[in-house]
Computed example of a mutant assay.
Amino acid sequence: MAEDMNRAILKALAELGKPAKAKEIAEKLGVPTSKVSCRLAPLRKKGLLDSPEKGVYVITEEGEKFLE
């Protein structure tokens, strides 16, 4: 289940094509913000997304490879 959400978050970020907040990602996925927020730190730790500024996230090259 967590892996599905991770993939969905990365896909949403890739589709948005710009830095996004958890709320924007959640709205794109149609899920509560809390469901997205709790997955962001683990994804960042794995190097699949980055946070250029507090509360804003972008997909990394590693994250894009993960989606392939």
Results as ranks from 00 to 15, higher is better:
Ser34Thr: 10
Pro52Arg: 14
Ala14Glu: 14
Gly30Met: 01
Ala41Glu: 07
Lys35Gly: 09
Glu15His: 01
Ile59Phe: 09
Asp4Pro: 00
Val31Gln: 00
Ser51Phe: 12
Lys23Pro: 00
Ile25Thr: 06
Val56Cys: 15
Cys38Gln: 13
Lys45Asp: 10
Lys11Arg: 14
Lys23Arg: 12
Val56Ile: 15
Arg44Val: 01
Met5Phe: 00
Glu15Cys: 01
Lys54Glu: 15
Glu53His: 11
Lys18Asn: 13
Met1His: 05
Leu48Ser: 10
Lys65Pro: 00
Ala41Met: 04
Val31Glu: 03
Glu15Lys: 10
Lys11Glu: 15
Glu53Asp: 13
Pro19Ser: 07
Glu3Met: 11
Glu64Leu: 15
Ile25Ala: 01
Leu13Gly: 03
Ile59Ala: 07
Glu24His: 00
Leu10Thr: 03
Leu16Met: 12
Gly55Lys: 08
Gly30His: 04
Lys45Tyr: 10
Lys45Gly: 02
Glu68Gly: 15
Leu49Asp: 05
Val58Ala: 09
Gly30Ala: 02
Glu61His: 10
Ala14Phe: 07
Asn6Pro: 00
Asp4His: 04
Ile25Leu: 04
Ala8Pro: 00
Pro32Glu: 05
Glu68Thr: 12
Leu13Ala: 09
Lys45His: 03
Met5Asn: 02
Ala2Asn: 09
Ala26Cys: 09
Ile59Met: 08
Val36Gln: 06
Ala8Leu: 03
Ala22Asp: 07
Ile59Arg: 13
Ala41Gln: 06
Thr60His: 08
Leu49Lys: 09
Ala20Trp: 12
Glu3Trp: 07
Ala22Val: 01
Ala41Leu: 04
Gly55Gln: 12
Gly17Val: 10
Gly47Lys: 09
Pro52Tyr: 06
Leu67Gly: 12
Pro42Lys: 01
Thr60Leu: 00
Lys65Thr: 05
Pro42Val: 04
Phe66His: 08
Gly17Ser: 13
Asp4Met: 08
Pro52Lys: 07
Lys11Leu: 15
Lys46Gly: 04
Glu62His: 08
Gly17Leu: 11
Asp50Pro: 00
Ala14Thr: 11
Thr60Asp: 02
Phe66Asn: 07
Glu62Met: 09
Pro52Asn: 05
Ala14Met: 11
Lys65Val: 12
Met5Gln: 10
